[in-house]
């Protein structure tokens, strides 16, 4: 009985919280699917649904191109990070070389450096090497992440060293140990950090905003912010753009959520 009431109360609080935190996105959807004429009226008439905003947007903008760019950047960074982070994490977890902990500490220290402090010199540096205004300028600085190495190493540390010792007695090389033991066993954490990386890259804003000048190289976030600047008052169009940017991430989450939750659970247990 008591339990039932408690359940009702928590249901109520959860519903209220959901309205507050998810509300803006619902409002985005409502606006995006309302016809432009109804929106322009004073007061606006809600409830007149149409796809007009999306039609105008897709006809005019470069949304498709920007989405492809965002996808290319996110996918390239995710793949590269998965490989480099896993390799490094394995090196730290299974290696016994001199200066291992010192190098690891230096890497950890890098986690404290905020992106903004290196932004300007990095920009000048990349300009010098002619990498500004291309997708490389967004991809390259992100292809390894100290945080990723840290996370994966924590996980790999829990893999018993005896396993790799046994494999080595059987004649396996270090690389084979990595390839056939550590890499597959670390799949849950690699999937989790991969999905996070993908989402982070998809949502990255400040750095692409600075380095990408040509519209054909814009990522979706940069493109949308320029769209906002161009169509200041056309909120229907803006919200349609925002919807198009948000939907792929929702799909990614839906699709991978099982792996992700599993990775988090295991990560937390170990």
């Amino acid at each position: 009985m008591n339990r039932h009431i408690a359940n009702q109360i928590s249901l109520f609080f959860l519903a209220v919280g959901l309205i507050l935190t998810g509300g803006p996105l619902v409002w985005m959807l409502i606006t995006a699917f309302t016809s432009p004429d109804a929106l322009a009226a004073t007061p606006p008439r809600y409830g007149e649904w149409s796809l007009e905003n999306f039609k105008v947007l897709l006809a005019a903008g470069n949304i498709a191109r920007w989405s492809i760019n965002s996808f290319v950047v996110s996918a390239a960074v995710t793949i590269a990070q998965t490989i480099f982070n896993a390799l490094a994490a394995f090196g730290f977890a299974a290696g016994r070389f001199k200066g291992r902990e010192a190098i690891f500490l230096v890497l950890l220290a890098a986690m404290m450096v905020p992106g903004q402090i290196v932004m300007l010199p990095l920009f000048l540096f990349m300009a010098k090497w002619g990498m500004i205004d291309s997708l490389w300028s967004v991809i390259l600085p992100a292809i390894a992440s100290p945080f990723g190495v840290y996370m994966v190493r924590q996980y790999m540390d829990s893999i018993p060293i005896q396993m790799s010792e046994a494999a080595q007695i059987d004649g396996a090389s270090h690389y084979q140990v990595f390839r056939h033991i550590y890499f597959p066993l670390s799949m849950p954490i690699l999937a989790t950090s991969g999905i996070f990386t993908f989402i982070t890259q998809w949502n990255a804003f400040l750095w692409p905003l600075i380095t990408l000048n040509s519209e054909r190289y814009y990522t979706l976030t940069v493109g949308l912010s320029t769209l906002q600047d161009q169509q200041m008052m056309d909120f229907g169009l803006l919200m349609a753009g925002a919807t198009l940017a948000a939907v792929p991430m929702v799909a990614v989450f839906m699709f991978f959520s099982r792996y992700m939750l599993e990775g988090m659970r295991k990560g937390a247990i170990q």
Binding site: G17, L18, T21, G22, P24, L25, W27, M28, T31, I199, W202, N203, F205, T221, L224, S225, Q228, F235, L238, M239, G241, A242, A245, A246, M249, V250, V252, F253, M254, S257
Partner: peptide, 20 residues
């Protein structure tokens, strides 16, 4: 899922909505 989902939307998207 419902609580997590809005979190995957980028801050740019959310800010556009807030501006509106």
């Amino acid at each position: 899922a419902a609580y997590y989902l809005p979190g995957v939307a980028s801050v740019v998207v959310l800010t556009m909505v807030w501006r509106w």
